[in-house]
Every structure is written in structure tokens, then in C-alpha cells.
């Protein structure tokens, strides 16, 4: 098992959001967490990425306990987080942003290999490598954020709401690029509000409601589940 989250409690300040969330991912899997607004999807991601320290429970990655480590230490262990806000370095060029993504890799040669890989994944970024990240369109920024997440050659890629604020055509692009990554053997954990689309592309899913895991199972089963259909798909 690549990632195992056991009875995780987390929140902001005195406000607890997650209550005993448990989930796991095997190597090479494409897993999603779906759920309504405010269910705690992003909180789960941020806690795994180390941006929020957990109140209770444990996170085991690659056989190692990473509970309570700082975000930079967790990145060094091989988890890469693509946040909803993207958190790009807006006054840096695309190339500089990508190099920063490979900050934990000290070898310049490997950095350049990763850069070529990301450029082959997103040729659009190669075209715009000298443009400032802050001047790019929403879709391009999303690509850059995912590309930057891939630069560190992560064992696990956490992607938070990649379709947020994007035009439908661009959403399709983002999902395509995630498919390509999956085919490359990258383990991906995806958080999305676009339930239909997400359950169609992922292998397995967790339904998060009010900070608890409601349902879990293969994505195709979840898509057929009457409760899911009623609550999320409105049918």
C-alpha cells in the first residue's frame, strides 16, 4: 500500500472538519474523493500534503509514518500536491516555476530530464516557457500547476479540484493530461466536484460527506449507487 490514512481528524484552529477519515491507495491507482461543498475534501488533501497538521489519527506513506511532518518534508518523501488555488509563482517565468517544482532534486541533469518530460506532456508550456506565470490564462496555469507538481518525480500526485473555474473545453484538457499521467504509471489522488466526469475516469472512489467517508468502492459501482445518484447527480 502506497498511502494509508487511518482515523484522521483535522481542521482549522478549533474547528474540526475531518472526523476519523480512513482511506488508502495502492501503487499505480487512480483514486478520487468526491463530495459536496464543505465536506472536507480539500482539507483531507492539505492534511496529507502537510499544510495542515492533523489533530488525531495517522498517515503512513510508503511504510513510513509521516503524520505531523512539515509540507516540505512530505514533498521530499515523494508526495506532490497540486492545490486548488495552484499557488504558482506569478512573477516567475514558466520555466522558473517548473525548476522550482524540482527544488528537491539537486542534480541539474535530472531536473532537465524532468523539464523535457513535462514539456512533452504539455507542449503548450514549452511554447510559453519565458512567459510570466501570472500573465497566463486559467487553463494554462492549471497545466503549469500540474506540470510543476510532476517536476519532482513524485510517487503520489494529489490533485485538488483541477476543473475549478475552467471552461468545459479546458476541463476536458486537464482530465486528458491526468489520464496521460496515469498511463505513465503515476499514482494519482483526485479531488473533484465534477462527480460524473470524475467517477467515469477513476478506478476507485471515496464519497466524503460532513467530514466522514460515506461510501467507498469501485468508481463504476459508485456511479450506479442510488444514494450517489440522488445526492450528486440529481437523478
Amino acid at each position: 500500500m502506497l498511502l494509508e490514512v487511518k482515523n484522521l481528524d483535522a481542521g482549522y484552529g478549533y474547528l474540526q472538519i475531518l472526523r476519523s477519515v480512513s482511506l488508502n491507495i495502492d501503487k499505480g491507482e487512480y483514486v478520487c474523493i468526491v463530495g459536496p461543498n464543505g465536506a472536507g475534501k480539500s482539507t483531507t488533501m492539505k492534511t496529507i500534503a502537510g499544510l495542515i497538521s492533523p489533530m488525531g489519527g495517522g498517515i503512513i506513506f510508503n511504510g513510513e509514518d509521516i503524520t505531523g511532518l512539515s509540507a516540505s518534508q512530505i514533498t521530499k518523501k515523494g508526495i506532490s500536491f497540486v492545490s486548488e488555488e495552484m499557488n504558482l509563482f506569478v512573477n516567475m517565468s514558466v520555466r522558473e516555476n517548473l525548476y522550482m517544482g524540482a527544488y528537491i532534486i539537486k542534480d541539474k541533469k535530472i531536473q532537465n530530464e524532468r523539464l523535457d518530460f513535462v514539456f512533452s506532456l504539455f507542449p503548450r508550456l514549452a511554447e510559453r516557457k519565458d512567459q510570466l506565470a501570472g500573465t497566463m490564462s486559467g487553463g494554462e496555469r492549471k497545466m503549469l500547476a500540474i506540470g510543476r507538481g510532476m517536476m519532482s518525480d513524485p510517487k503520489l500526485l494529489l490533485v485538488d479540484e483541477p476543473s475549478f473555474g475552467l471552461a468545459p473545453q479546458l476541463v476536458a484538457n486537464v482530465f486528458e493530461s491526468l489520464d496521460v499521467l496515469k498511463d505513465q504509471g503515476v499514482t494519482i489522488m483526485l479531488v473533484e466536484q465534477n462527480v460524473t466526469k470524475t467517477l467515469a475516469v477513476t478506478d476507485r472512489g471515496y464519497i466524503l460527506e460532513n467530514g466522514k467517508i460515506g461510501l467507498q468502492g469501485a468508481s463504476c459501482d459508485l456511479a450506479d449507487d442510488p444514494h450517489v445518484r440522488k445526492v450528486f447527480l440529481g437523478v
Binding site: A49, G50, L51, S70, A71, S72, T75, K76, S80, F81, S83, E85, M86, N87, L88, F89, V90, N91, M92, E96, Y99, M100, G101, Y103, I104, K106, R148, G149, M151, S152
Partner: peptide
């Protein structure tokens, strides 16, 4: 330099800097 870029990265987006593994 790598470190100089990290300093700029922290100034532009501190969360982004943490995500890419910079020790703030």
C-alpha cells in the same frame, strides 16, 4: 541561483513554496 530563486518563490507564494519542498 537555486537558493535565490527559492527566496523569490517564498515572497511570491509561501504555500506554493512549501508545496515544492522549500524549507521556509
Amino acid at each position: 541561483t537555486r537558493t535565490g530563486m527559492a527566496i523569490r518563490a517564498v515572497s511570491q507564494d509561501i504555500t506554493g513554496a512549501q508545496i515544492v519542498g522549500i524549507d521556509i
